[in-house]
Design a protein around this nucleic acid. Structure first.
Lengths: 190, 190
DNA sequence: GTCTATAACTTGATAGAC
DNA sequence: GTCTATCAAGTTATAGAC
């Protein structure tokens, strides 16, 4: 692995642990066994690291959305696919996801505006799939915005709880979260 | 309203907007029409403000948990009551909830440890109610930790989306979120 | 590419006049 | 209680030797 990549990876961890603002370039330099000033042979500035983390994940999610939109599938299957993708990403790369979710607001302009526009676009496309499901009677008649944000929010704990005593394997965890969101907490047919 | 309360209120808003670390005492002073040094006639230090916001909300939730535990009710009704309390709090006091949820990690010791212990205790009591529901067959046989975190997380968007174009009134919004979490997205009996 | 040295600035907090 | 003045420490980032 080259030094630049090592810097990006350690920076992501550091931003996750302490938050972007509280993570200093001296902290980061120490972790990659450099002096702070030497970092600037590899990067232009601190915020550039944040930009890359956020931009890469935005592309990652947008490309997944494109694949899902092209599927021949019901809204229900599409939503299941998107949830699955979010959950797997959160488990595979919890560090980047945390930075992407919690630290984007420290982006400088124009990157902050670009990030928000990209997120709005993603949510709009997700909302359209939900709306189709509601219209067809596949989904409960609940406001699509409420559905959208409750689903996306409902899986946001996964990347924080990596070391939690949850006995499930990856697949079991994913299945149960999706079952809970799609079928609800209440057991029917009692 | 006295100056001390005004400082606390503006600080909460500032922490919400910029994050604790990025919110400076000079920012805060400007908002309450003081010089930064004058703030210290009302408070001892910056972190003291964060302590109070977090501690007050911890008490708020703990007292609600005590009332729910004393109810003569099924686990299902208790969970509904707790969700309702969380949702109402998020809508009534989104600013404090944001700080409580996102900025607690900037608490200094021993307050940080106290906060985490209090949160662990709250979650443990919530988990016990969920476990009772699963055992009685009222709830789906899903890991109680997964249920706990998915429910709590599923309502975490509410305090961020105050100005969102969601056409519902308070009660409609609350009802729909709870319906979605308890009964699921999929419509049954089609 | 890495270092030392340092510029330029912001931070939380204090001292002391009024 | 509020101010001016200031401190000590921390910040990102650059200049220039090697």
């Amino acid at each position: 692995m080259n030094k630049k990549q090592e810097i990006y990876d350690e920076a992501a961890k550091l931003f996750q642990e302490k938050g972007y603002g509280a993570a200093s370039m001296r902290d980061l330099a120490e972790r990659v066994h450099l002096k702070a000033s030497s970092l600037y042979s590899h990067i232009r500035k601190k915020e550039e690291i944040l930009e890359k983390i956020c931009a890469d994940l935005a592309v990652w999610f947008t490309e997944a959305m494109e694949r899902v939109e092209e599927m021949e599938a019901t809204p229900r299957e599409k939503v299941r696919e998107l949830l699955s993708f979010h959950i797997r990403t959160a488990m595979d790369d919890p560090t980047s996801i945390t930075v992407f979710s919690d630290e984007w607001k420290h982006l400088e302009e124009p990157y902050r505006s670009q990030f928000l526009a990209s997120r709005r676009d993603y949510e709009e496309r997700f909302r359209r799939i939900i709306q189709a499901g509601v219209s067809k009677g596949e989904f409960r008649p609940i406001d699509p915005n409420i559905i959208l944000y409750t689903l996306l929010s409902g899986i946001r704990w996964l990347h924080h709880k990596q070391r939690l005593p949850i006995p499930q394997h990856r697949e079991g965890l994913e299945m149960q979260v999706i079952e809970l969101l799609l079928e609800g907490l209440s057991k029917k047919n009692q």
